[in-house]
Amino acid sequence: MVLLLLASPPHFRSGNIGAICLVLWSFIGCLGFFVNAIVWWDNVENKAPVFCDIWAKLTIGLISGISSACLCINRRLKIISSARRTTVSSRERRWAVWIDIAIAVIPPVLFMALHYTVQGNRYNIFDGYGCQAATYTDWHGVVEVYLPPLLLGSISFVYGGISIYNFSARRRQFQSVLQQSGGGLNTSRFIRLISLSLLEMMLTVPLAIWSIAYIFRYALKPTLSWADTHADFSRVDTFTGEALLASGGDIVSRATLQRWIPVFAAFTYFCFFGAQEEALLSYWKAFNRVKGARFGKKARADA
């Protein structure tokens, strides 16, 4: 998690909204799942209700957030690779930033809010996994929770394919196009960004397809009224390890895969951008700050 944040300053400085949101969602996911694994290891006690309320909603936005960030990246790369003119006004750049923010932020926030309409109880607690969002899996739940990552990922794949085609068709003039587009892009960073986002989609899209297929085959429930869906809403359902294994393993497999998606996202981000010159400079600056703070305190103590 620390290396993920240390490798991200170049994108913060260049204002790459998609990459910034990908870093933030990956960090939130890694931190949240780590806390859950520690606190609820071998128990299902309702130890932190407020934390679970927050985390249950964040898990709904997590996969959509990563998918939205990748869509933002691929859309921006598609626009840049398709550009017919090499100059962009400052007004156009500001407008592009606001559009990127809307694409990366609005979908996960909207889906977290919509989740309440299909939230059957406060939250669930899985042994070894911690707090989980409670979703009533009728067709509304499928459309509002499980379908959005699939749609976002599919659109992102289309943008990525167009970007790759444009790169292949305009390779000779591509470097000059990237330099004029702003944002500190060059051919190497363009390839790494598009590879990163497509790799993320290769994990989130199959998860969405698997989840939807599983629900339609085994877990699709009849549509109920608002009152019936939210009856006894304040309850917290707990599932011991034995209960999870008795479910047939599908719930455990989905929970495990969901846990590892932000880890995969963070790892792949670091692999693509963690060894860049700017990232190495960030590591060195961080090391010097820590070293200076440590030896500064020691010097004051000796004085």
Rank of each mutant, 00 (worst) to 15 (best):
L4Q: 04
L6F: 10
S8K: 07
P10R: 10
S14W: 11
S26Y: 08
S26P: 00
F33N: 14
E45M: 07
N46V: 14
P49I: 11
C52T: 12
T59R: 12
I60S: 04
L62Y: 01
S67P: 02
S67C: 15
S67V: 01
S67N: 12
C72R: 05
L77N: 04
I79K: 12
S82C: 10
A83R: 10
V88R: 11
E92T: 11
D100W: 02
I101N: 04
A104P: 08
V105N: 03
P108D: 06
V109G: 07
L110K: 02
V118H: 01
N121Q: 08
Y123G: 02
Y123K: 06
G128C: 12
T137N: 14
W139C: 10
V143M: 15
S154F: 14
Y159S: 05
S168W: 09
R172F: 10
V177D: 09
N186K: 06
L196K: 00
L198Y: 06
T204S: 08
S211K: 11
Y214E: 01
A219V: 00
K221P: 00
P222G: 10
S225N: 09
W226Q: 08
W226V: 09
A227H: 14
H230I: 09
F233A: 12
R235C: 06
R235W: 06
T238H: 03
G249Y: 06
V252P: 00
S253W: 08
R254M: 12
A255H: 02
R259G: 07
W260K: 05
P262G: 10
A266F: 07
F267Y: 12
Q276L: 06
Q276Y: 07
L281M: 11
S282G: 00
K285G: 01
N288S: 15
R289S: 09
R294K: 06
